[in-house]
Every structure is written in C-alpha cells, then in structure tokens.
Simulated assay, not measured.
Amino acid sequence: MKDAAKQRKTKLYDYLKRAILTLELRPGADLDETQLCDAFELSRTPLREVLRQLSGEGYIELRENRGAWVSEMSYTTLRDFFLAAPMIYGAILRLAAINATPTQIAALKEVQNEFKTSLATDDAAARALNNNRFHEITGEMASNVYLLPSFRRLLIDHARIGMTFYRPNNTDMKENLSEASNQHDAIIKAIEAGDENAAAQLAIDHWNLSRDQIEMFVTPSSLEIPLGSVSMKT
C-alpha cells in the first residue's frame, strides 16, 4: 500500500512539473486540490506534501488559506530573469566542469540524444522538457547549495518562455535550435574534459543565442496574455 501511494505521489509530481513547464498549466493558474486528489487517488496529506515540494522548487506558490497556484511570470520576474540568467548559467557550467562525475556525464549525453530526437520530430513539449533536463543535470553536476535553488527557478521560466516564443517555423528559428543543439554537444565535451573556462564561455554563447528573443519577450509590447496574469497575487 505504501509503495502504491508513493507511486501515485510521484505521478502527481511528474504531471504537475511537466504541465507547468509546457504551459499546460499557465502561470498564475489556481490548482484544484480536490480534483487532483481524485485524479491521482491521494488523500489531502500526501497531496500537500507534493505541493510543498514543488513550492520549494519554485514551480508553485502556497499561501495559508489561499491554496496553491502556478508560479507567476510578471514583467518584474522576467526582467530579473534576464539580468540574473547569464551570471548563474556561467557559474553553474564552470562548477559542472570541475565537479561532474562519469555517471552524470553519461546522463547528460543520454538527454542530449533525446533533445536531438525532439528537434527532429518537431515536438515542442519534448524539446522544452529535454532541454530543461539537460540543464538540470548541469546544475546537479555543479553541486552548489547556494546556486542550485536559483538555477532551478531560472530553468522553470526559461522553459516556459521557450514554449511561448520558440517556434521553428522559419529558417532563422530552425538554425537557432540547431546551433543550440551543437552548443549542448560542446558543453558536454568541455565538462568531460574538465575545462572550466571553456564551459563558462559556452554558457555565455548559449545565453547569447536566445538573448534577443528573451529581451523582446520581456518588453511589454511583446508580452501576450497567454502567459497568464502579469499581476502578482496578494
């Protein structure tokens, strides 16, 4: 019974994480706890355990007597993302090159292969999830108690932004995604070689590849309603 309940909790966690990263659940969307309990055959206590875990990781927000909702993406948070991302990505990849284990490198290569498959099949959701997992692993490699929570929060919004404006429907966008994949390969090589300077430079290059789109995206005229509410709940 305990194993079955644990599996249902894992399924709920995986569902909510995927739904948030792929915008199936929009920023600011309320979570219906009764519906989730019924759908995953969980009582309120294990449900709240999953929600607290996701809250700690930055996927959702919890407030007393207000329930749970998907983390917001406001103009302010997106601009903060734009400012912080290049610094944190650079630090993460530098530390990844120093601390990565062979097992982690093998996992990174496996996810990169899945990322390439998602590009070939034009599966936007799989692409976003595989890209997110690729960078999650680099964060695990870095193994820094101070950087990792901020990095994970950045990855959530990076995936959601990507689901909004990355659409490989023209030559420039397809070339951008192809170059991103090539940079992933180069990142793996730099980490495998333990070359922290090359890894840090690749972080800058990788960021610059999407910087223009992100900068356009956080401009008010480019931010569209489908992202969800741009006002913060109080």
Rank of each mutant, 00 (worst) to 15 (best):
V145A: 15
R153A: 13
I187W: 02
N132I: 00
A159G: 03
S74H: 10
P149K: 10
G90F: 04
K109D: 00
K174F: 01
A124R: 15
G139D: 06
Y146N: 09
T77W: 06
F165G: 01
N113L: 08
M163F: 08
K109Y: 00
T76A: 10
L93D: 08
S118H: 02
R160S: 07
R160K: 11
S143V: 01
A190H: 05
S74A: 10
N176Y: 06
I92L: 06
N132H: 15
K109H: 06
T164C: 10
D172I: 08
E192G: 02
T121L: 02
R127Q: 12
A124D: 13
T77D: 09
H158N: 07
T101D: 02
A91I: 06
F115Q: 04
A193K: 15
M163D: 10
K116P: 01
E140C: 04
A85N: 06
E136F: 09
V111S: 01
T121R: 04
R127Y: 13
N144E: 10
N113R: 07
L119M: 08
Y166L: 13
M173Q: 04
A159E: 05
N130P: 00
Y166N: 12
H158A: 15
A124C: 01
G162S: 11
T121A: 01
D172T: 07
A126E: 14
M163W: 07
L83E: 08
Y75A: 12
D157T: 11
F115K: 03
L95R: 15
A142H: 11
I191Y: 02
T77C: 06
I88F: 10
N182Q: 08
A190V: 09
N113V: 02
F82D: 07
A128D: 06
N144S: 14
Q183C: 00
F115Y: 13
I187K: 03
G194A: 05
A159F: 10
N132W: 15
I88D: 03
T171Q: 14
A100E: 01
D172R: 06
A100D: 04
P149F: 05
H158T: 10
A85R: 12
T117L: 10
M141K: 03
A142F: 09
S178C: 01
P86K: 13
V111P: 00
S118K: 01
Y166P: 00
A125E: 15
A190T: 02
E140L: 12
A85M: 12
D122Q: 09
T171H: 08
A96V: 11
I88H: 06
H135C: 04
D123Q: 11
K116M: 01
T121K: 03
N182Y: 04
M87T: 04
I187M: 14
T103M: 07
A96F: 07
E192A: 15
L148R: 11
R79H: 13
F151R: 03
E175Q: 12
S74K: 08
L147M: 13
I92S: 07
E110W: 00
N130I: 01
V145F: 06
L154Y: 07
A96H: 12
T77K: 12
E175H: 11
I92C: 12
F151I: 04
Y89V: 00
R160P: 06
A84T: 09
G162L: 09
A120P: 01
M87A: 13
I156Y: 07
A142W: 07
T77F: 03
N113S: 08
N144G: 07
F82G: 00
I98V: 15
L119Y: 02
T164V: 13
A126P: 02
G139S: 06
I92T: 15
F82H: 13
A193V: 03
S150D: 07
R79G: 01
M173Y: 05
